[in-house]
Design a protein around this nucleic acid. Structure first.
Lengths: 342, 342
DNA sequence: ATGAATAATCTAAACGTTTAGATTTTTGGA
DNA sequence: TCCAAAAATCTAAACGTTTAGATTATTCAT
């Protein structure tokens, strides 16, 4: 691997001149610039970023840590982050923490020692999130996306999960549903918590009980499917379901299908996410769409502002709007008209 | 940020001793080991991997470059790579090249200068792939997954796209279909090419023409949807469709839905991928499933073998089996019985 | 008690850059 | 033609590690 020394020797100049040429040659004559550039080409030189950032203590690189890349909502957000960061000249290393705090920590440290300029994280929900600790671990500006606790001193970009869930569940209530089940992911995920809180608030306001109607820990499609079996076979069988995220929604679809129940005839149904398939299903599915592109754009903006700003910035918390997309999976509930899944 | 010097000073030893303790203290007394470890804790020292790898020229890190993280098949493969690499003590940086060779190159160079031990890549299909060049760019062992040219000197892990496509299309032919349309992604993607070749081989063997039946460049759901409109409104309207990847498959579903056509009644239909939704749709969709977990496992195995082996290894090309999952989207074609989508 | 062998610890030179500051060259006004 | 100022180029010291090899301390057979 050719180094600067090789280039310098080839061009007959000092290593400092080579460095100057590479970093946008101020104060170096055209003649030498040319000679150095030729030499670079000749010896096939490529800068060693490790050495550079050892010296400068900085790179044009961000780290983006997500809890699971196969959840499409996180893939979409990561994609947006990538696009906007690139537009600003930053490269993005994506790390998949698989909902493990240990792995998440490892990646934060690794990113730190690779001198990333900043980071964007959707924290793992394995334990309670201490966002400040995460920023300490990274040792650089960090923006929390999606799963951010309410009181924190770190910048964050979230959606109003509570309001979105409350609105969705209220719609079901207005359609006449009284027993509405909820299928949720980890109870330690702040988003899941807020969505369930919104669900409970709507139920509460209508004077409805949620007892026995909430299923937590449906962390993949199969678990959500089982939860649906379970709910639909209980004494207190719901007439409508609310799924708090993509895999829960898919689990509901599959669960209803295998029970021989159809929506919206037998059960009404609203889910978060599912951008890729909710509209394609027949009947299509009413859903809450998160502004993934904006979330990525804003997260990048916040972290770059903090990286590039000399002065202290106050803590920013951006709450973006969700979109409620009414489709065919919700129908009015008429008492008595209930299918039996058993 | 505390450095080794700080630790050395605190513990009253030399920096070399600190280094020895950190790298599995051979030849250092228990007493000093203890003192150094305490000092490390006291000053909050964390090794600077940049400096370390500048010296050693190596890290326990892999880079994984995918052409688009929102394609679930790539997310699944990336997930598997992550899991198996982690099990072997390697961290994985995931990079999203967005089908852009320029960006892909940037990430290869970045990874190189971060001294990654090796890489796994699903190449961008923007131009013809020169895999050897990619390995040169990385400057470390590279394994190509999924989109690998046939003749290459670099290790690769692929599936038999030709055979899988041929088999799927043959099934449609055996069901009586004569006009079978194909919806494909980039013509520069080797996988797409091979799948189309398999399709053409099956058609050819049955003496059927493919003229006007192939739609390329359906690089997202909307484009695939348009292609379906286009195909179903042509004079030579197909009675069956073959989609070469996830988004094409979804485009077919949506296209048929909005045309008011139903499958398998009006059109039979097979797709690659779609693990997340193909079974959930009603009717469910016959599909070709790729062994994403195995692909990831084998890719990691190959690259680690090359990294850790002292001796020269011969070029390996692994061809894994796909799984054909017969569902409800394919029916026999009865001449004359054709719906009109206009 | 002596010295050879071994164990423990340290010194100092790398790794490939950047950059302050020194030195040399060029420029142009008097 | 001279000299000061500006421009171009260079020297050498850092950045935070690792590691070969030097030095010092310990052990143990004689």
């Amino acid at each position: 691997m050719a180094t600067m020394h090789d280039v310098a020797k080839k061009a007959g100049v000092s290593i400092a001149t080579v460095s100057a040429v590479i970093n946008g040659g101020v104060n170096v004559s055209e003649k030498l610039t040319k000679r150095v550039q030729d030499a670079i080409r000749d010896v096939g030189y490529r800068p060693n970023i490790v050495a550079r950032s050892l010296k400068t203590g900085g790179t044009k690189t961000l780290v983006c840590i997500v809890p699971g890349i196969i959840n499409p909502i996180y893939a979409e957000i990561a994609q947006a982050i990538e696009v906007f960061a690139n537009a600003k000249g930053y490269a993005v290393f994506l790390c998949n923490a698989q909902e493990e705090c240990k792995l998440q920590r490892k990646y934060l440290h690794l990113a730190r020692s690779m001198q990333v300029a900043g980071g964007i994280i959707i924290p793992a929900a394995e334990q309670d999130v201490n966002v400040e600790q995460l920023e300490m671990d990274l040792g650089a500006p960090l923006v929390v996306v999606d799963r951010a606790p309410l009181e924190t001193t770190v910048d964050s970009v979230v959606v109003d999960n509570f309001q979105a869930a409350e609105r969705a569940v209220s719609l079901l209530i207005n359609l006449g549903h009284r027993r509405i089940g909820a299928v949720a992911s980890y109870p330690l995920s702040t988003t899941s918590l807020q969505r369930i809180a919104g669900y409970e608030a709507a139920m509460d306001k209508a004077g409805l009980s949620t007892e026995g109607l909430v299923r937590q820990n449906c962390s993949n499609v199969d678990r959500a499917k089982s939860a649906v079996y379970d709910l639909m076979r209980s004494d207190n069988r719901p007439t409508a379901l609310f799924a708090t995220y993509e895999h829960a929604g898919m689990g509901v679809v599959q669960g209803l299908n295998s029970l021989g129940l159809s929506y919206p005839k037998d059960v009404s149904f609203i889910t978060f996410d599912g951008n890729a398939w909710a509209d394609a299903l027949h009947p299509s599915i009413t859903r809450i769409r998160q502004p993934t592109e904006n979330m990525g754009r804003e997260a990048v903006r916040l972290v770059l502002e903090r990286i590039e700003s000399k002065t202290e910035l106050s803590v920013r918390r951006l709450v973006l709007e969700t979109e409620f997309i009414l489709k065919d999976s919700c129908a009015a509930y008429i008492a008595g008209k209930e299918a039996d899944p058993s």
